[in-house]
Design a protein around this nucleic acid. Structure first.
Lengths: 127, 127
DNA sequence: CTCATTTTATGACATTCGTCGTTCGTGTCA
DNA sequence: TGACACGAACGACGAATGTCATAAAATGAG
């Protein structure tokens, strides 16, 4: 596992990272095009560069340089989820799961998948 | 329900909001004391004021003014959870729950509670 | 090679955020 | 009443962010 603890990722950084995650490695112009939003070309450039400065992305040396995320979506999401978990319920997952399944209409298939998840977890439960 | 969409709450705002959530309404000096961290008195004042400016907190007119959160923890957390949900799995809760139960050792009691949650959800499942 | 087009590098400017110091108002109490 | 203490208002300043324009450099079409 990595020893580096990924800092809190801001909303703005996330916007760019999402593009990198969706399309493996993109050039600046591709990234700009992917950002549907009306935003300047050099703005994207600056933000991409800052992401690289912070170690959140890497730039290849090829000619039109390609940018790739240096942190995985999984990593970042897991970090956020942990924070959320700690905050809303002191680390207990039950209230969080409750929130997820409440007021949300699930399909029977989803229900089945959830049941399976719980069953699998049960096998590893601490006695 | 409220029609207002709560903006993305930053890490710094969260630090103060947590104090407001924990202790219903606090005065500036109480808030300052609650922040264990070594931080200036006026710094807390400024941050509280900015929170008020943004509509995330309200200040009473009493003499030592009391600050209360204008957004509930539930509201903010739900918003973050929704974002996370949208991002990691396009809105499907299954992968998120999977992440929550995986690599985490749950007690038998928690397992039981989770099962109950799923069973209840099943009753409202869309056929 | 030359020129138009695409990429990259710089520099800039406004806003927000984190951090305070200083000043001002207002009770309190000796 | 006058000095004090505490809360609030202001204003400041540096770092981070969001935005972009313009200049310089590299590439590809002829």
């Amino acid at each position: 596992m990595s020893t580096r603890k990924p800092r809190r990722v801001t909303a703005g950084e996330m916007e760019i990272l999402e593009v990198l995650w969706r399309h493996g490695g993109v050039t600046l112009s591709e990234a700009h095009r992917s950002l549907a939003r009306d935003i300047g070309y050099t703005t994207v450039q600056t933000r991409l560069n800052r992401l690289v400065d912070k170690g959140l992305a890497r730039r290849s040396t090829e000619r039109p340089a390609r940018y790739v995320a240096a942190v995985s979506q999984r990593e970042v999401s897991a970090g956020q989820l942990d924070l959320l978990l700690k905050r809303v319920s002191g680390g207990s997952i039950v209230p969080l799961v409750a929130h997820l399944v409440e007021d949300r209409s699930l399909s029977l298939d989803e229900i089945a998948q959830l049941k399976k998840l719980i069953d699998d977890a049960e096998k590893n439960a601490s006695k």
